[in-house]
Design a protein around this nucleic acid. Sequence first.
DNA 1: TGATATAGGACTAAACTAGTCCTATATCAG
DNA 2: CTGATATAGGACTAGTTTAGTCCTATATCA
Lengths: 155, 155
Amino acid sequence: MLRISKMTDYATVLLARLAAAPERQLTAAQLSAVTHLAAPTVSKVLKQLHRRGLVSSTLGLRGGYRLARPAAQITAAQILDALEGPMALIECASHSHQCSIESTCGVGRAWQRVNLAIHRSLQEITLVELAGLGGEPVRFAALERALRGGRAERA
Amino acid sequence: MLRISKMTDYATVLLARLAAAPERQLTAAQLSAVTHLAAPTVSKVLKQLHRRGLVSSTLGLRGGYRLARPAAQITAAQILDALEGPMALIECASHSHQCSIESTCGVGRAWQRVNLAIHRSLQEITLVELAGLGGEPVRFAALERALRGGRAERA
DNA sequence: TGATATAGGACTAAACTAGTCCTATATCAG
DNA sequence: CTGATATAGGACTAGTTTAGTCCTATATCA
Ligand code: FES
Ligand code: FES
């Protein structure tokens, strides 16, 4: 359904760790140790996150990583986009009209709107929620409110 | 992001065709002709849809497929589930605690809740909307209302 | 100067997807 | 009864994607 690749999950784990200690600067090795993820993998993910501007880094001895901005300003959508590209919606319409049946279809567009709606929802979920740092564990109030509004709340 | 496989898209296209002529019974060959999808592929998708109970079929000469129930009772979530399995959420927690870092993580659960919220939203979108048969083109009111509720409507 | 870190990218193995094809079975016309 | 038409099921292949490792270059500082 919503397929989150392992790498994206790892990214979230690492970002959550960094978010938990915003003042410190952690090395890839430290993050590997504390998360029990393989060092090369951690390194790879962090480099990707750095490329996409979610973390900032310091080179050399005493180097390391830290969040590029407060956790509240990092959204689930940004994490997804950083690790999995702009967003792999329905394949048909993604790269300039590759689909041979586009004319008779009309369905692709509908799926894309679903995708867009989801993407916008994910922009409301921040690293604070994902990392469980806020008071509430995770709060998808916005998304869930929609369901209750559109259909009678059950029980 | 939300990765819909081609097969799922094809399924939607085929279901939309069937929904457009609920009284008729169409063969795989006819559907292939009208959608311009390769015959073997159409066949494969229809068989899968039959297995999952979304279409009913008649064997033999003058056989064919038709919707198993009214389009309004077939949801996007059902289509997704039929083609892509129960729902491939975050890989970690999907198959009984495979993840080695589950204890230190806590993030998987957050993603899963996101996934669940999306899944529930998709239960409110029916084939009628996907096929563009209703008066309105597609109506993700529920999902979009959430965004407007959580954040000031722009423009 | 050398130890420590990140940066970037090449590379491999495994998993998944898309798509085709083959065989079996049900239905019905003649 | 026989043969043509359709679906049912599943095996199989090729292509793509993902996960993960490894190597080389560069920056920092004791
Ligand atoms: S646009 Fe490609 S199947 Fe709909
Ligand atoms: S449970 Fe596996 S990474 Fe979180």
